[in-house]
C-alpha cells in the first residue's frame, strides 16, 4: 500500500511535535515553536480556502483578530470565562464569514482580493479605533486561562496545547480533502463551469470553506491571545494577512503540510532576523521576494516531486 499524502502529513507532524521539546534548548525556543503551531493553524485553514478551493483572501487576519480580541474583551466587558469567550469569538467570526461570504465569493480574481482585503482592514480599523472598547493601538491584556481550576501557564504547557489543537485542525482538514466536499472544492478551483454542471453547488461549497477558514483563523487568534496574554491590533493588520497568504504559498498551495512548513518559516525567520536590527524589514521583504521567485511551486510539492513517484501523492 502506498503512503498517502494524508498519512505522510500526519506522521511528519506527529514526529516533529513529539521530538521538538527534546531538541529545543530553551523555553524561548519552545515559545517560538508555540507561535509556529498557532500561525500554522490559521494557515492550514486558509489553505483550505486558497490552496484547495483557489479563492484568495487578503484579509484573513481580520478573522484572526476577532478571535484574539474575543479572549480579551469577553472577560473584561462581559465577565465571560476566557474559554467561553474564545468560543464566542469562533461563532462571531464564523457568522461574519457567513454573512459577507455569499456576496464576496461571487467575485473573482482581483475583485475577490480587494473585497477580502477591505474586510480585513475594516476589522483592523475597528480594533484600532475603538479605544474605549479595545484599548486602541496600545493593545489590551488577556486574562489567564483557567481550565477547571488549572491555571494554564508555562512555555511547555502551551506548546502541547497549541500543538494538540493544530493536530486536530490538521486531521479535520485532511479529512475534508478526502470527502465529496473536498473533491468539489478542488474541482471548482480548476473549472467552475464543469463543477456546476457536475451538480456542485459552487456558491455553497465556497461559503462552507470560507466559514471554516474563518473559524480556523479565529481559533488561532484566541490561542495567540491566551498564550501571549496580550493582544494588539497588529494581529489583524494587512501585513499579517499577507504573512498568512505567504505561508500558504511558500509551503505549497493545496498542501496542508506545506501550510505548516510555511508558517514555521515565516514565524522563525523574523525571530532570526532580529540580529539584523535596523535591516529587519528590508531583509524580510527581500526574503519574501526570493522565496516567491525561487520556490514558486512551494516547498512541500517541490520536495515531493524529488521523491520517487507514488511514494508521496
Amino acid at each position: 500500500m502506498r503512503v498517502s499524502a494524508r498519512h505522510a502529513t500526519l506522521l511528519l507532524f506527529l514526529a516533529a511535535f513529539a521530538a521538538l521539546p527534546l531538541l529545543l534548548p530553551s523555553s524561548f525556543h519552545l515559545r517560538v515553536a508555540t507561535l509556529v503551531w498557532i500561525q500554522a493553524l490559521a494557515a492550514v485553514g486558509l489553505n483550505l480556502l486558497m490552496g484547495l478551493a483557489g479563492q484568495v483572501s487578503l484579509g484573513h487576519a481580520g478573522f484572526f483578530g476577532i478571535g484574539a480580541y474575543a479572549v480579551a474583551l469577553g472577560p473584561r466587558h462581559l465577565g465571560l470565562d476566557p474559554l467561553l469567550s474564545a468560543l464566542a469569538g469562533l461563532v462571531l467570526s464564523g457568522l461574519l464569514a457567513l454573512l459577507v461570504g455569499r456576496p464576496i465569493l461571487r467575485l473573482r480574481g482581483h475583485y475577490l482580493a480587494v473585497a477580502t482585503l477591505g474586510l480585513g482592514i475594516l476589522v483592523w480599523l475597528v480594533l484600532n479605533s475603538e479605544v474605549a472598547l479595545t484599548g486602541g493601538p496600545d493593545g489590551i491584556q488577556v486574562p489567564r486561562l483557567v481550565l477547571f481550576g488549572w491555571r494554564v501557564a508555562g512555555a511547555e504547557t502551551w506548546y502541547w496545547i497549541t500543538g494538540a489543537v493544530l493536530l486536530l485542525g490538521v486531521w479535520l482538514a485532511l479529512n475534508l480533502e478526502d470527502s465529496p466536499l473536498g473533491r468539489a472544492l478542488r474541482a471548482l478551483h480548476d473549472s467552475e463551469v464543469a463543477a456546476r454542471v457536475a451538480g456542485i453547488d459552487v456558491a455553497r461549497s465556497k461559503l462552507v470553506v470560507f466559514v471554516m477558514a474563518a473559524i480556523y483563523a479565529a481559533l488561532a487568534g484566541s490561542l495567540l491571545g491566551l498564550f501571549n496574554r496580550f493582544v494588539t491590533p497588529q494581529v489583524a493588520d494587512f501585513l499579517h494577512s499577507i504573512e498568512l497568504v505567504t505561508m500558504v504559498v511558500i509551503g505549497g498551495m493545496g498542501s496542508t503540510l506545506g501550510a505548516i512548513v510555511g508558517a514555521a518559516i515565516l514565524t522563525v525567520l523574523p525571530q532570526a532576523l532580529t540580529v539584523f536590527h535596523d535591516y529587519e524589514h528590508a531583509v524580510l521583504g527581500l526574503m519574501i521576494i526570493l522565496f516567491m521567485i525561487f520556490l514558486r511551486q512551494g516547498i512541500v510539492p517541490g520536495l515531493a516531486a524529488l521523491l520517487p513517484r507514488r511514494a508521496v501523492a
Binding site: 465529496p180 473533491r183 468539489a184 474541482a187 478551483h189 473549472s191 464543469a194 463543477a195 457536475a198 451538480g199
Partner: peptide, 19 residues
C-alpha cells in the same frame, strides 16, 4: 475541454458522482 487538471483522471470522474 473543462477538465479538473490538478486532479487525477480517476478523481475527475469521482467528482461526477457528487450528486
Amino acid at each position: 475541454l473543462q477538465i479538473f487538471l490538478r486532479m487525477t483522471v480517476l478523481e475527475n470522474v469521482m467528482v461526477g458522482r457528487h450528486l
